[in-house]
Design a protein around this nucleic acid. Structure first.
Length: 493
RNA sequence: GAGCCGUUAGCUCAAUAGGUAGAGCAACUGACUCUUAAUCAGUAGGUUGCAGGUUCGAUUCCUGCACGGCUCACCA
């Protein structure tokens, strides 16, 4: 506890005085009958006259966020889970003793009150308090009422203060909750089953990110936090779950930026007897229905620009995008050394022995991705950078895969799943050969998964969607930290 | 990991040729029975992120460190 601070000392003294007087500052037996939102909904439209005939009184509870004193009366702003409501405390009504007690309350305290609705001279729906109780004493002053809390570090470290002081922040997280709910509805309605798969993996797989390591004591076993649930979800497909989804937390031990948090939320879903083409259609449906229901339309403001989600979304092949969007010389598609030259020219650092596909992917990231503002499916990715995707029937150099980009960022990644176990083994091995420097940390041969595949997997399409980034779009948030309650920060000293 | 920027009262911010650190809100005392950032009068509140250095004197100049932000790098 911050003992030095005088403001806190004052409040602790108040707390002690209350206790001495036999007042429990933290009772838990107050029952509410209504919330601020319910009061506004029912009585908001009523005139002063109509309100006068409402005999009922209401019990509400919440945190005091503002007090305006007038000698023998006071206005209080009470904040509860769905809004704020004004309460009017009058000495004449609540009695002298109770009014003195009221004067000792602080902004930040929780109170429960019983009162009747009326409308003030200025028209605000208000509760005329008949009686009230202290429900929870607060010992710290709240952030300033007008400017709110802007210190970004405090906003993240003490998110509860951010939520109290900045109403828009709470709205972002309510939107996030709604997104999750809509996703569940969407898939449940289509006969998908929600599943949960391990977060502790003996072998990290499903993506090539660096994993977090941990250790299980009883088994004396090294474990990794999952970088993706993909390989476990496919095991379930093999086991007969033809339609599944998981809303999952995954973990990647990499850099932190406005688009990356070490733990993040993904939606992954799998649909048997479908291909990546149907996945694209489903993705449009999912995003558009969410935008309609949550945002109320398909045009989203995005950092001063507008994103138009009206389907169908543009589809363009990976290689074509390099030329048409990236403005690169077509010769790089045919000639790997030219591609490498171009990458070097652009100042890209290439890994030793990077494959042609890898180099093209780097060029894509540099020259194409930032320009994909409106929703765009990039399809036909090079096989060598897509180890889990099914090869295209006409051209085995590319796979039946797409990635969705909106606002210059990857939002989703989907493909027809590779269900040929021998091909899958080859691809894994090739990956290991090409990136030996990473074999220690992120690439292992998952024999257990290959065994499962060898039993036979139905033709299936799967997709992963970055929920955090989608919520960023829906709420026009510039940083992923704005849509994650507690983003990872270095600990304070 | 690199570069740039930031860190002053509980909160939001001021303060330069280097010269006793200020305001609003919050708090405290008083006035006030319809306010909406209520108003009015008064009071108190500071190890200027931390540690060094230069100087008679450092919030200010220099060095290092800590934490944060942005950009880049790493990376889907």
């Amino acid at each position: 506890m911050d003992e030095a601070n005088e403001l806190i000392q004052q409040r602790i003294r108040k707390l002690e005085t209350l206790k001495q007087e036999g007042v429990n500052p933290y009772p838990n037996n107050f029952k509410t009958t209504h919330t601020s939102g319910e009061i506004f909904q029912t009585y908001g439209p009523m005139s002063q006259e109509e309100l006068r005939s409402v005999g009922e009184s209401f019990c509400l509870a919440g945190r005091i966020v503002a007090i305006r004193n007038f000698g023998k009366a006071s206005f209080v702003q009470l904040k509860d889970r769905n809004g704020k409501i004004q309460a009017y405390f009058q000495k004449e009504i609540i009695g002298e003793e109770k009014f003195r007690f009221f004067k000792r309350l602080d902004i930040g305290d929780f109170i429960g009150l019983e009162g009747k609705v009326f409308r003030t001279k200025t028209g605000e729906l208000t509760l005329q308090v008949q009686t009230f109780r202290l429900l929870g004493k607060s010992l710290h002053p709240l952030p300033e009422k007008w400017h709110g809390l802007t210190d970004i570090e405090i906003r993240y470290r003490q998110r509860y203060l951010d939520l109290i002081a900045n109403p828009k922040v709470k709205e972002i997280f309510l939107t996030r909750a709604l997104v999750i709910q809509r996703i569940r509805d969407f898939f449940n309605r289509r006969g998908f089953c929600e599943v949960e798969t391990p977060m502790l993996h003996p072998i990290p797989g499903g993506a090539t990110a660096k994993p977090f390591r941990t250790h299980h004591n009883a088994l004396d076993m090294e474990l990794f936090l999952r970088v993706a649930p993909e390989l476990y979800l496919k095991r379930l497909v093999i086991g007969g779950f033809e339609r599944i989804f998981e809303i999952n937390r995954s973990f990647r031990n990499e850099g932190i930026s406005t688009l990356h948090n070490p733990e993040f939320t993904m939606l992954e879903f799998y649909l048997s007897y479908a291909t990546y083409i149907e996945m694209m259609e489903m993705t449009e449906e999912l995003f558009c229905s969410m935008a309609e229901e949550i945002h109320g339309g398909l045009r989203l403001p995005s950092q001063g620009r507008e994103i138009d989600l009206t389907p169908p979304w543009r589809r363009i092949r990976f290689k074509d995008s390099l030329i048409e969007v990236g403005g690169l010389d077509p010769v790089i598609l045919k000639d790997p050394s030219k591609a490498t030259e171009m990458a070097v020219e652009l100042g890209l650092e290439l890994k030793k022995g990077a494959s042609h596909g890898r180099v093209l992917a780097d060029l894509f990231k540099e020259r194409v991705e930032p320009h994909l503002l409106q929703p765009t499916f990039i399809t036909h990715y090079p096989t060598e950078i897509s180890p889990l995707s099914r090869k295209n029937e006409e051209d085995p150099e590319v796979v039946d895969r797409f990635e969705l980009f909106i606002a210059g960022r990857e939002i989703a990644n989907g493909f027809s799943e590779l269900n040929d176990p021998l091909d899958q083994r080859e691809r894994f091995l090739r990956q290991l050969r090409e990136r030996p420097e990473e074999a220690d940390s992120s690439l292992f041969l998952d024999e257990d998964f290959l065994l499962a595949l060898e039993y036979g997997m139905p033709p299936t399409a799967g997709e992963g969607i970055g929920i955090d980034r989608w919520v960023m779009l829906l709420t026009d948030s510039p940083s992923i930290r704005d849509v994650i309650f507690f983003p990872l920060l270095r600990p304070e000293k």
